[in-house]
Design a protein around this nucleic acid. Structure first.
Lengths: 205, 205, 205, 205
DNA sequence: CATGAATGAGGCTTCATTCAT
DNA sequence: AATGAATGAAGCCTCATTCAT
């Protein structure tokens, strides 16, 4: 939430549009919630679901109790992280779906995922959480995919759920190519793998 | 086992090479070893490496100590399971590599993996064990792959290690398509995903 | 935090250097730490290193996890107990080394050990921990011993490491004289044994 | 028990004086019992009481069940080993007690113990077994000690039980001087320690 | 009788979760 | 409301002892 850089515009009376799902929290509480989420995102990405909750709390600079004030369980925290990440993806997918060129829009989105996947070690685990990728994802993907298929850039006969599965597999594949988070993925290898999957999505001859 | 390059020297007197890897074991011991291996195979496939060893023992109908009589550690047991599975794959790959039609040999092998993958939840975990999929796998795959590439059936520029990573990704993808081992994979979905990956491996246009 | 190199700036406001080794701990935590240490001291003294950690925790009236919050391993706890005990000894040795009469100082220290040894069953085990009885002990003993030798009260040809071994032997001997910690050592017996060792340390005829 | 050096005395008809406590055993059974005892003696000496029983069985070249056929429990086996060792000592003490020179007889026995103690890691543990050193030991020591005291070679005021305690302490002391059984005790150190204790036993000035 | 495989209790340690401060 | 200490249920593994072969 960027602050206005300048200008005398008074913020008086503006009814801060808080997200509807999140009840009003004191400023420091919200700040702590954010710190925990960020720390959890990094920790899960680096070490997977097995990272101890104490380490997440330590990264966030808070006590373990604070984590539990904001999230009822470790699994709930994990789900929140995944959801946040997926929400970002959905927003991006929707933006690209508005593009004039459906084919590049679709493959560009795919490429973004491949690029991001390298250091996100928790995505494969996320599949255990049912409902994380829900209607919003499906519909956003559907728009991207349908457009690309209509433009003849992607093979027919596959659907958004197929794609979701394929994406998850791509995440997993790329992680396996870089089992050690310290030494990141060889970009050339990543490109070779990406090319195979992307080509497989094009219309068959 | 290198073949003699030339010469009529007969291998007279060489003692019949009985299976050297498996020392004689009492009947009950071998029976229990098999029970443990089977239980471990199923348990790992269903729940991944994190399944408690006590549960494996319970499934096998033995005490935990019995597992340790046959395998020095949980990791060793896991490796044994993986190795057994991979050994089968290698043998199959080598048989197919002797075929006269390299392209179908390669894709047939791919298809066999896809078929088998459905209920094998532990293959993705196997990458954590260094050396489990080692030279034998690589060289068998190399023969299959090189032959198919020479025949123009598979795109150039990819190598056996690439393939290993891709196979693992395929495993993972298919697992995600059937998260619950009780409800097996929809064959049509599996075929759609397989077609994408297989087509991606063909030479690009 | 580098200090300015020069200038007459007085060090006003420098906070009183509180005990640096012991970081501030919550009152209850410190209380529990003490309880654990006391319980461990007693348990090790009574049963040696092999006493189960769960029993130490039970004696202290805490859960096993609490022990691990304060000490990273059973061995570390043991070392802490030994170190605390040895630290006391070293302080006493140094105080006596400042005495004007080296002979009585030395034998007085020996006597103190003999007196204390009765109910300390864990000292013999302590030798397995390298570094527990390290430089501080050696140098303190060295001062005591050298002084007594210079005064002609102790035989030449023996060194501080010899003494450490001998002390341990004395501990062991006295423990054996009272195998059951419930029934304490007969003081007359203890004095007879002590006299033998002490006389053996005097210069030979 | 020294063998007669020469002489044609035929051992014919001598009704082999088997120990009365041991019922008749088949030859191979007795052989196994001996093998187990020897292996246990070595293993306990090297690693203390904590050595696994399976290792003792393996050293003896028998199965674990065989150990249990001859000894009802691990502790009974340990006690048997200790008893055997002590029995040897007693025989030696009695032989020396018959000597014409009580002082050297006594100190010679002491020296033999010091020499033997180096690689006998289980003696300190043996003190936990009550009754292992029983009347036979006490009386043998008593003869040695009383003789030496009568000859003015050993201080008055100490008794055989005192000596037993002191011996055990000596064992322990020497073991502590060589905590690693691989690197045996420095003989010079052992001699220094022995001299201290031996001198302490002489009559005080 | 010997064998060595099987048992299962118990040891050390970790970590999600709760609770006193 | 935050903190971080305490809890206690598992998890992995060892080993004395029992039992089928």
């Amino acid at each position: 939430m960027p602050e206005p850089q300048s200008g005398p515009k008074p913020a008086v009376g503006q009814p801060a549009p808080t997200a509807p799902a999140e009840p009003k929290l004191r400023a420091d509480a919200r700040r702590n919630r954010e710190k925990v989420l960020r720390a959890a995102r990094d920790a899960f990405a680096q070490s997977g679901y097995d990272v101890p909750l104490d380490e997440i709390a330590a990264r966030a600079g808070v006590g373990a109790g604070t984590v539990y004030r904001h999230f009822p369980s470790k699994e709930a925290l994990f789900e929140a992280v995944i959801t946040a990440r997926v929400t970002d993806l959905v927003a991006d997918a929707e933006a690209r779906a508005a593009s004039a060129e459906p084919g590049p829009a679709f493959f560009g989105f795919l490429e973004r995922i491949a690029t991001e996947a390298t250091d996100k070690r928790d995505l494969p685990d996320a599949i255990a959480i049912p409902g994380a990728l829900s209607d919003a994802v499906r519909s956003a993907l559907d728009r991207l995919l349908t457009g690309a298929q209509a433009a003849g850039a992607v093979r027919p006969g596959i659907s958004a759920p197929d794609l979701i599965i394929l994406f998850k597999g791509m995440f997993a594949t790329l992680h396996q190519a870089a089992p050690d988070p310290a030494t990141p993925l060889d970009p050339a290898l990543r490109d070779r793998l990406f090319a195979i999957i992307a080509d497989g999505l094009r219309p068959p001859r």
